[in-house]
């Protein structure tokens, strides 16, 4: 068995602040954080590795902003705090947005109540409808991006960050109805992604949503309620 290389975190933290950290620094950080993240998130390897890379990136961004001071805390202390926050964010997110794989079938889910084996025709029609919805959204979204480019605003991306989980699920019903916002990423999160203030993110987001509705109406007709093609 090989023992872990000994590392002086005090010296390594100073080296990190001066952009000359050693390779061992990253190896040791990963070795230290991996069990912590695994305990917090459970045995989901994909998410654990994601949290690790997000943590490293956050550390590097902190340093790039000049926000890291080795006098105040050593690198592992900051890294641990960041990793724990990231785990919490993930857990909060997975609670609000439970995802399901399109590849795997849950054996405990039981048979589909309506149509256990949809016919080929039905599947083709559903797939075509889904593609049509995606393309329609993309057309309207691109037009909004084009307008943003002309006016120097960020309405399209504010809408994307705010509604991205619904967009990725092909659920565009947010264009026609105001559902409770509890499950949406907060404006603070949107602002952090866009690099603007929370207020600016909120303004861009609501203006973007209005503009998208208008663009959709111009291209594809009136937005209607229950029979809307915007639902998955």
């Amino acid at each position: 068995m090989t023992s872990a290389p000994s590392l002086s975190w005090e010296a390594e933290s100073v080296a990190f602040a001066e952009h000359r950290e050693s390779e061992t620094c990253w190896i040791e950080l990963a070795r230290m954080l991996r069990p912590l993240v695994a305990v917090r998130l459970g045995d989901t390897r994909a998410e654990c590795e994601d949290v690790l890379s997000e943590t490293f990136l956050a550390l590097l961004e902190l340093r790039a902003r000049g926000g890291y001071d080795p006098e105040r805390a050593a690198v592992p202390v900051i890294a641990r705090t960041i990793a724990e926050r990231r785990c919490l964010d993930r857990l909060r997110h997975s609670y609000r947005h439970p995802t399901r794989s399109l590849d795997r079938v849950d054996p405990e889910a039981g048979p589909h109540p309506v149509d256990p084996t949809p016919s080929v025709e039905r599947r083709v029609v559903e797939a075509a409808a889904r593609e049509a919805r995606r393309e329609a959204f993309r057309i309207a979204f691109r037009e909004l991006q084009r307008a943003d480019r002309a006016y120097g605003s960020c309405r399209a991306l504010a809408v994307f960050y705010r509604y991205r989980f619904r967009i990725e699920e092909d659920d565009y019903s947010f264009l026609i109805e105001s559902r409770p916002d509890a499950d949406l990423p907060g404006w603070g999160e949107v602002a952090a992604q866009l690099g603007v203030t929370e207020e600016a993110a909120r303004q861009n987001g609501s203006r973007g949503l209005r503009a998208l509705r208008a663009l959709w109406r111009d291209h594809f007709g009136e937005l209607t309620g229950e029979q809307s093609p915007l639902r998955p």
Partner: peptide
């Protein structure tokens, strides 16, 4: 901003498909 948003989109779609980065 576009590359950042695209990266977020790819990362989300990857997790939605239960894939890790290597896969």
């Amino acid at each position: 901003p576009e590359t950042l948003a695209f990266g977020t989109l790819i990362s989300d779609l990857r997790l939605r498909n239960h894939l890790d980065c290597l896969q």
